[in-house]
Simulated assay, not measured.
Amino acid sequence: MATYLITGGAGFIGSHLSYALLQQGHRVINVDVFTDLYDYRAKIRNVLAATGCKSVFDFRYKEADLRRLSELVRSADYRLEVADIRDREALARICAQERIEAVVHLAALPGVRASGLQPLLFQEVNVDGTLQILETMRDHGIGKWVCASSSSVYGNSSKAPFNESAPVDAPISVYAATKKSCELLGYTYHHLYGIDTVMLRFFTVFGERQRPDLAIHKFVRLMEQDEPIPFFGDGETMRDYTYIGDIIDGTLRALNYVEGRSGVYEIINLGGSAPITLRRMVELLEEKLGRKAVLDRLPKQPGDVERTDADIAKAEKLLGYAPKTSFESGLERFIAWYKGGQVQ
């Protein structure tokens, strides 16, 4: 049994990863600040789902709820720490109390459009926060980590599919620039202090427990309520949607990879390798929900890329990664989760 620290472990990807590691018999330390980006109750439900806790949770107010949650789910295998990754003292306290084999760093402020509105905050959380993680790892002798990057670092690359060797020196959003910065910091700490690193460039992750502000979740909710959905541009932008189960499989493989080797620094794409247009995504939602979408047509937003398209040859070679869930099948699973009460 290994002990892993997961930052952002109460989020969409983090809660699925926590569950997977617990199922494998490992111990998870979840560091999450429960940001106000969206309703904190969604993250509480994520933690309950990840830990298999069946307790009925009657919500009151945030601070009391988080204290209760931490006590409720704490076990020999799972520990929830409500803390900000920028809080060096909190990180040091946690690492001093635990023997952590590796870190999976998922915590970040997300959102291309939001990053343009709050660039300083994105820099503080995504870049400074990552630096605090790396410094804490160095201080406490933690020499292995997997860090979440993003397909957004490719910007409007004209060469598709996107290969990890392509230059990524022209990010078109603050969010993308922060993720590129994290990759650079990861390399620096690998070079200077020997921290073995895998940077995973995630491509548009979707599936059960997806954040409510993301397109598929938002579109399903609005269509079920017969409300217009925001439709940016002409509908021809493309995204390489990747089902959460495939992302978790790839992340676990990356964790095994970095733990089993020394002198490692790798950047690896994790994608679904089958991009579809915004227009086609809406058509499939209409088909699966049996409803006609009302489109609120809006201009294309600054920072939005034209397409994402993952070259996954490196992930296949190094990790044995092979996405198994098609977009259509993943969409059906998400809709079943949404209509089933959104608790599993």
Score class of each variant (00 low, 15 high):
E287T: 07
S165A: 14
I216E: 03
G341H: 05
V146Q: 14
Q225R: 12
L214A: 05
V198E: 11
G25M: 03
T136D: 07
A20R: 14
F59H: 04
L117E: 11
A336G: 02
L37S: 05
I335K: 00
V220H: 01
A177T: 03
K159I: 11
A83F: 13
D65R: 13
A76L: 03
R86M: 10
I133V: 12
R93I: 00
V73H: 08
V153N: 03
L106R: 04
G245L: 05
G143E: 10
R211E: 13
I44E: 06
A64L: 15
A102R: 05
S181I: 06
K144C: 07
L106I: 14
T308V: 08
L91M: 14
S115G: 09
Y257F: 15
A170H: 02
I268C: 03
A64G: 11
Y243S: 00
R261A: 15
V125W: 04
A315C: 05
K288V: 03
M1C: 03
M199H: 10
R88G: 15
A310G: 02
L285W: 06
L5N: 09
Q23A: 15
S165Y: 14
T242G: 00
I13T: 13
T3I: 01
I268W: 04
L66Y: 11
A90E: 10
G245A: 08
G340I: 04
M223Q: 08
A322I: 06
G233V: 12
P119D: 00
L120F: 03
I247C: 13
A42Q: 07
G14T: 11
W145C: 12
Y154G: 03
D32P: 12
A49G: 13
P228Q: 06
L69N: 06
T325K: 04
E316N: 09
L252K: 14
R99W: 00
L134Y: 11
D87L: 07
Y40V: 11
K339Q: 12
K179T: 13
R45M: 10
Q301K: 01
T308C: 09
E183I: 12
A107Q: 08
V220N: 00
F122M: 05
L319A: 12
T7I: 10
N256A: 15
E183Q: 14
D84L: 07
R209T: 09
T237N: 07
N269T: 05
R88I: 14
R93G: 06
G303T: 11
M1I: 04
R211K: 09
G341R: 02
D128W: 01
